[in-house]
């Protein structure tokens, strides 16, 4: 027995030595290696595709497979900014779509915050056993595919859908309310889909809050509602920022919800992008749209990152 154990050790040890020696010879430390894996992943699946899309956005359209070329008629490599990016600026459709996306995303974020804050606050103030059940319920919808959940709303909202049928059956309305294919349906879909992303970071923040601060405020003559705005809200600011970012950023580029629930008037940048790619087969413009929206989203992300760094600095 003892000899077999030591034999196993003997065969294993040189192997790890071998790995270590190799890494050392290459000048790579173990810590670097651990960090390198996610870096490599992001490089391959985020940065390289980004460069490809960037290059496509600077190409010419041709009728070919693929439907773009990097070369002009003379066969020179040219960066064609005018066709794609020029169109983004000159055609008001794109500006409108961008603006509309930002408005829809911002409005949805505010609605999510208004609904999510009391939600998170309530959960954080519950007894621990009830708290876990409520958190579970918040996460539960994720067990069903996002697409299916959005489809389910069609069944609820359409003219002969569940809501209209029930309302008509109990006699509150005579004819169905047109809810499908409206901005209302888009907002409903976005708020419904992204609410958990607002609640969870807010909950994580509010749950940590020191209740004696509210007692101290009350002790100093501050009524509960005022204490909420003077103490709780400012202290939960990191949670508000995190939740808002998690809702706002994906909502700006949202495609599925306006496509399935929205009407022709709900012009959002995700839909424009789809149309350029698949209907117009204008890949350079579609890529330009994508690059522009990416930049528009990276900037707020960077602001958030800066803010978080500042918070971390404060804590340390």
């Amino acid at each position: 027995m003892a000899s077999s154990v030591s034999a196993a050790h003997a065969s294993r040890l040189p192997a790890s030595h071998w790995m270590r020696d190799l890494l050392q010879a290459l000048g790579i430390r173990g810590r670097t290696l651990v960090i390198a894996i996610p870096f490599l992943w992001l490089f391959l699946y985020f940065f390289v595709p980004f460069l490809i899309v960037l290059k496509v956005s600077l190409a010419f359209i041709t009728i070919a497979q693929p439907p773009y070329t990097h070369f002009n008629e003379a066969g020179h490599l040219v960066f064609n900014i005018g066709d794609s990016y020029g169109r983004l600026v000159s055609d008001s459709l794109y500006i409108k779509a961008y603006w509309n996306s930002l408005v829809v995303a911002a409005t949805s974020t505010v609605i999510c915050l208004l609904i999510g804050y009391p939600f998170a606050y309530g959960i954080a103030r519950c007894s621990p056993s009830v708290r876990n059940i409520l958190l579970m319920l918040v996460i539960l919808p994720f067990w069903t595919s996002f697409l299916i959940r959005v489809y389910a709303w069609i069944g609820l909202l359409k003219n002969n859908g569940l809501i209209n049928e029930v309302l008509m059956a109990i006699g509150i309305i005579d004819s169905p309310i047109g809810m499908m294919n409206t901005n209302f349906a888009v907002y409903l879909g976005i708020v419904y889909s992204y609410l958990p992303f607002m609640i969870l970071p807010l909950y994580a923040n509010l749950e940590k809050m020191d209740m004696s601060l509210l007692e101290a405020a009350a002790d100093l003559g501050c009524k509960p509602l005022k204490a909420f705005f003077l103490i709780t809200v400012p202290l939960s600011f990191p949670g508000i920022v995190a939740g808002s970012m998690l809702v706002f950023i994906p909502a700006v580029g949202e495609y599925v919800i306006p496509e399935l629930l929205g009407g022709p008037s709900s012009l959002m940048i995700g839909r424009v992008l789809w149309t350029e790619f698949f209907s117009n087969r204008d890949w350079p413009t579609a890529s330009a749209v994508a690059i522009a929206i990416l930049l528009a989203l990276v900037i707020p992300l960077m602001i958030y990152q800066k803010y978080q760094d500042k918070e971390l600095e404060k804590e340390s």
Partner: peptide, 12 residues
């Protein structure tokens, strides 16, 4: 008025 054991100073 109370002075709390944890002080309960408003951190912000």
């Amino acid at each position: 008025n109370m002075m709390f054991q944890s002080y309960a100073l408003f951190p912000h």
